[in-house]
Design a protein around this nucleic acid. Structure first.
Length: 924
DNA sequence: TCTCTGCCGAGAGGA
């Protein structure tokens, strides 16, 4: 039976004499819960909250002792109270009348099984725990061996799927044009080298075909809920893992870390019903010239038998890694037996140790960072790792939640009916399924998802790209899966990049930059006499500061104040001065909006320049990002990654303006780029490390945003919730400018937000704005509206149905209001409805016509409408965290141009002072 | 059950 529980106290380790000799044992007090539903293997579980504390240790729970024998006793060192432990194939014993458990010869002990560890992470960890840590901190830089290795793997996969070798090489090399260009490689030379490696693979494949019909499967993503492992095996041949290595290995035996990697895949396969005792490592750089002296063997393949001992060793290593990650400790390198003098990362290791004043086996060089910087590092390291644990929790939900729960959570589409699988050129597959309901989910076109025939972890599943998602789902994948279900596949990519950005800012960052970030120096500016914007003093000052900033400028742009225009004008001025500019923001949408404004601005700019100097040179602009993320009309500016390396790299390198999300700024390709200025829009929605990803690439930076609107989205409550923008606005008032003229709202609409959030400083830019009403719109007459809707701000009293997250009475009333506006001549597309909860958004959407935009506050940020109707969805009181953040109400109230209607229960709203003031304002 | 976007996925190698 499997035993699962939390460590409930101190672990006792001792030696005992047995009939087999001296044995180690560890006695672990464990808190168990009742048997679960029996769907899974007989496992005893317990309930625990996020901090590892048992949430309700009542009579449902029982404490017992699990004895871990011999090697498993080693794990006792890090079995802190609160850690979760799973013991497979345990035996039950009775001791002094109490039931206890112990490991058997077949047992595995898994620490924190819900913490999914990557196979490659274990490989690094086995090599040296500190190497694992360093890789995490600084990422893998762009270098040729890595790119070549990736290429050979891709070609290998293609060969297994039956693709022609030359066709595969051509296509794969072409796809990596940009990277190869940055590395200064020619396609011919790379293709030749890949061909060399591929020959070794082909030769070996031929051998296999001569002997018997092999059964192959390429690149399968495997997840183990028992061992807490995930990884993607290069190939599986007759049920056993095959790992490809493009490095050289002339020894008889495979390298140990490679064996470890194969052993991880064996464990994964075992959970999926396999019985693996053989692993193959394919060293493709080994050629006929490297004939094995002993055996005379020409093959690059090295087979080895996978003993029980190796598999258990691997699990213990995984445990050690998981325990360290949970505790937040920093590895020193003493945990392993690697020799520092052979290590490629020795220098990096010593510098990191020195700068962060960490203990390390390699020793320290360089002087430590100032204490406040080290404190910052550890604070943000913790915060980012907390985010990572939240991502891990998302993975765990793949098996902890049942299908319906995941669908209700919008994380899965479970209603699919498989239609067909069709082979594509190049050996990949197109999969089609029909949707049988209109259930919504966060899955969208272009996403990477787990496509399965029933269960994302236990069933047959494959990573797939969503090509189309309407009544039918069209996917592409490496292998054919009879898909009936799609699950969101969580990714650690963002957290990885945050960590690297923070590391780079502190350890590679320029001293002056850090003085600014830590408030140790005052921001300086060049004198600029040019006038950039005639009729708006604040905007002109903002552009002047942005252009003249030697360190940074901070532009505070409340709703409707033309920050996008200001950004565009500033970039144009920078470009005209010959500077190279990075334009970034957190979301693709924000990047595209800013880019659109810039393109308009540049058209004007080039025109006027032509008039002035006769030099009408076009400015080259490039948008970096994935096809699915970039808005269609910006597609012509998208940097294509595939193609001739020289051309690709020239396009990027010569671009005067590069636009990309902050996440993309952390990519290997973007990290190779350098800019004079980084301009970050919607900076108040970015975490500090997120902002660093962009500003790390530039000499100076300009942040544009509004910290009175919504903060960054983070999973865990921690230091990431405050933006760098907000912090710098406080500590560098000399660098800040607030845009104080708004071009959006009627004066009456703007009054409350201005008073409440902007100290009354926000004003209409022009009389036309202040006095705008629905009457300005063609065919609309305010007189046709009932008296209560004739004022630009109206309150509609609806008592509500008392529902927690929905209110059908409000929804019905809103449908009436929309009909009323329509009768007065408004187009449906001119009306927007905002609700706090997604459930209420769906409720309202089911009451109103399709062409009325209904969405949550969060998703309305950044856009505006002629008429906005707000559904408060609260009866009696304003309970719930969503109402606590007043920035959300600021966003909702500042979306309309000409009319705002608040719908809700006055009694509920009056229960909070801010909402009460809002009520007064709306009713007068 | 509060709100939620990114990312070409993971992994590719060097003695």
């Amino acid at each position: 039976m499997h035993i699962r529980g939390t460590v409930a106290g101190e672990v006792e380790v001792r030696s005992v004499s047995t009939s087999y000799g001296e044995s180690e044992l560890a006695e672990v007090p464990l808190l168990l819960a009742a048997e679960d539903d029996g769907e899974r293997p007989p496992t005893r579980t317990f309930a625990r909250d996020g901090d590892g504390a048992v949430s309700d240790p009542t009579s449902d729970y029982e404490t017992t002792t699990v004895t871990l024998w011999n090697k498993w006793a080693e794990s006792a060192d890090y079995l802190e109270p609160g850690l979760e432990v799973l013991v497979t194939d345990a035996k039950e014993e009775t001791y002094q009348g109490e039931t206890q458990y112990a490991t058997t010869g077949d047992s595995y002990v898994v620490v924190e099984p819900s913490f999914l560890v990557n196979v490659t992470a274990i490989r690094n960890w086995v090599q040296c725990p500190r190497l694992y840590y360093l890789n995490k901190l600084s990422g893998v830089p762009l270098n040729y061996p890595v790119v070549k290795g990736t290429l050979v793997h891709e070609v290998f996969g293609d060969l297994l799927r039956g693709r022609d070798l030359e066709e595969s090489i051509d296509a794969r090399v072409d796809e990596r044009g940009l990277e190869l260009g940055l590395l200064g490689e020619t396609p011919e030379a790379v293709a030749e080298e890949v061909r060399e490696n591929a020959k070794a693979i082909e030769g070996w494949l031929e051998q296999g075909r001569l002997t018997e019909e092999d059964s192959w499967r390429s690149e399968q993503l495997l997840i183990s809920e028992t061992f807490g492992l995930r990884g993607r095996a290069d190939a599986i041949r007759r049920g056993a893992p095959v790992e490809l290595k493009t490095g050289k290995n002339l020894k008889k035996e495979p390298r140990f870390k490679d064996k470890v990697q194969a052993a991880c895949y064996a464990l994964l396969l075992e959970e999926h019903g396999g019985d693996v005792d053989l692993g193959t490592l394919l060293y493709t750089k080994n050629s006929a010239l490297d004939r094995n002296e002993e055996t005379g063997d020409l093959t690059p393949a090295k087979e080895f038998t996978m003993g029980d001992g190796l598999l258990k060793f691997v699990v213990r290593q995984r445990n050690e890694l998981a325990a360290m990650e949970i505790s937040g400790d920093v590895p020193t390198g003493y945990e392993g037996s690697a020799k520092c003098e052979y290590c490629f990362e020795q220098d990096t290791c010593m510098v990191v140790s020195g700068r962060l004043d960490q203990e390390s086996k390699a020793g320290q060089i360089a002087t430590p960072l100032p204490e406040e910087e080290r404190e910052y590092f550890y604070r943000f390291y913790q915060a980012i790792e907390e985010e990572r644990r939240e991502v891990h929790r998302e993975y765990a939900k793949l098996w902890e939640q049942d299908a319906q729960e995941r669908a209700d959570d919008d994380r899965a589409l479970i209603d699919l009916k498989f239609v067909e699988k069709r082979p594509l050129e190049g050996g990949r597959w197109e999969l089609r399924a029909r949707r049988t309901s209109s259930a919504n989910s966060k899955i969208r076109e272009g996403d990477f998802v787990l496509a399965s025939d029933g269960h994302p972890v236990r069933g047959n599943s494959e990573l797939a790209t969503i090509e189309r998602l309407d009544d039918e789902v069209v996917l592409t994948a490496d292998e054919p899966v009879e898909v009936t279900r799609l699950d969101v596949y969580p990714s650690e990519l963002t957290t990885d990049r945050l960590l690297v950005a923070m590391h780079d800012a502190l350890l590679k960052g320029d001293e002056r930059r850090k003085d600014i970030l830590f408030g140790r120096a005052t921001a300086e500016f060049d004198e600029i006499s040019e006038t950039f914007i005639d009729n708006n003093a604040a905007q002109n000052e903002a552009v002047t500061k942005a252009v003249g900033a030697r360190d940074c400028a901070l532009i505070h742009g409340p709703p409707g104040t033309g920050k996008t225009y200001t950004i565009a004008r500033a970039i144009r001025a920078m470009v005209e001065r010959g500077e190279r500019v990075l334009l970034s923001a957190f979301t693709n949408r924000a990047v595209d909006n800013a880019l659109e404004a810039l393109l308009e601005q540049l058209e004007d700019g080039v025109g006027s320049q032509t008039q002035r100097s006769g030099d009408g040179k076009a400015v080259s602009v490039v948008r970096v990002g994935s096809e699915s993320g970039i808005r269609e009309d910006m597609e012509p500016y998208r940097l294509e990654r595939a193609g001739d390396p020289e051309d690709r790299v020239a396009e990027l390198q010569n671009a005067q303006v590069v636009a990309a999300t902050t996440a993309t700024c952390g990519s290997r390709v973007m990290k190779e780029q350098a800019f004079d200025v980084a301009l970050v829009d919607e900076a108040a929605q970015l975490t500090e490390p997120g902002t660093c990803a962009a500003i790390n690439l530039a000499e100076r930076f300009v942040l544009v945003g509004d910290h009175e609107q919504l903060p960054p989205v983070v999973r865990a409550e921690n230091d990431l919730t405050e933006s760098l923008f907000e912090r710098l606005i406080d500590c560098h008032p000399e660098a800040g400018v607030m845009l104080d003229r708004q071009y959006r709202m009627n004066q009456r609409i703007q009054a409350f937000a201005s008073q409440e959030f902007y100290d009354g400083e926000l004003r209409p830019a022009e009389p036309e704005v202040a006095g705008r009403t629905l009457d300005d719109l063609a065919g609309v007459s305010t007189d046709a509206l009932p008296p209560e809707l004739q004022d630009p701000v109206a309150f509609v009293d609806v008592e509500g149905d008392g529902g927690q997250y929905t209110d059908s009475e409000e929804a019905a009333r809103i449908a009436d209001l929309i009909a009323t506006y329509e009768r007065a001549g408004l187009e449906r597309s001119e009306i927007g409805v905002i609700a706090p909860f997604r459930a209420q958004v769906s409720e309202i959407a089911s009451h109103v016509p399709d062409d009325v935009t209904v969405d949550t506050v969060d998703r309305f940020q950044g856009s505006s409408q002629e008429v906005i109707i707000v559904s408060f969805t609260a009866t009696g009181s304003l309970e719930g965290p969503i109402f606590e953040d007043y920035r959300r109400i600021n966003v909702a109230l500042t979306r309309p141009k000409r009319a705002l209607v608040l719908v809700g229960d006055p009694a509920a709203l009056a229960s909070d002072p801010v909402y009460e003031r809002m009520l007064e304002w709306a009713r007068t």
